[in-house]
């Protein structure tokens, strides 16, 4: 997608006709929408990692044998005891789970949050670039329309 943006930048916008400009604007709008959606999804992912990392803070060596309520569904719980307070099992994606000690798990979530934040920043700067191009396209389109209108008025007079 990045390469597409560069291609557009290399085209001299002022040489395009109105139809082509509209097409480019539509494409840019679509891409901006995709960015917005991605940002939203990343934000959710970031929140989930944050939540998981935070809940690790509540587990320490004293937690062993303590009673907890285990959610069976979102609204139904059964009592349980913490059997192992040293290790947790983390979902790393594609159906694989790994067992890590608490510090390792904290590290893992910190790492993930950083990664997601980085991606968000990247998308934000890309989005800014795109909206700049979009603004430029809009400006030229308006200019075109003004010229066309002026010509029509001139023709109407003569």
């Amino acid at each position: 997608m990045a390469s597409k943006g560069q291609q557009i930048q290399e085209i001299d916008l002022s040489k395009l006709n109105l139809q082509q400009l509209t097409h480019i604007k539509q494409q840019l709008d679509q891409e901006l929408n995709v960015f917005q959606d991605s940002l939203h999804t990343l934000k959710i992912a970031q929140g989930k990692f944050q939540e998981s990392g935070d809940s690790l803070e509540k587990i320490n060596s004293n937690s062993k044998g303590k009673e907890i309520l285990v959610p069976l569904t979102g609204s139904m719980y059964v009592p349980g005891k913490i059997a192992d307070s040293e290790k947790v099992i983390i979902d790393i994606g594609t159906g694989y789970y790994i067992s890590k000690d608490i510090d390792g798990a904290k590290e893992y979530f910190k790492h993930k949050i950083n990664f997601v934040t980085e991606q968000m920043e990247k998308i934000q700067s890309m989005g800014m670039e795109k909206s700049k191009i979009r603004d430029a396209v809009m400006e030229i389109m308006e200019e075109r329309l003004r010229v066309q209108l002026a010509q029509q008025q001139l023709q109407a007079k003569t």
């Binding site: 694989y96 790994i98 067992s99 890590k100």
Partner: peptide
């Protein structure tokens, strides 16, 4: 990446 970071004696589970 995550698997590569693990020590050789680490536990890995697969969801089936």
């Amino acid at each position: 990446q995550e698997l590569d970071l693990l020590k050789s004696d680490a536990d890995v589970y697969k969801l089936i």
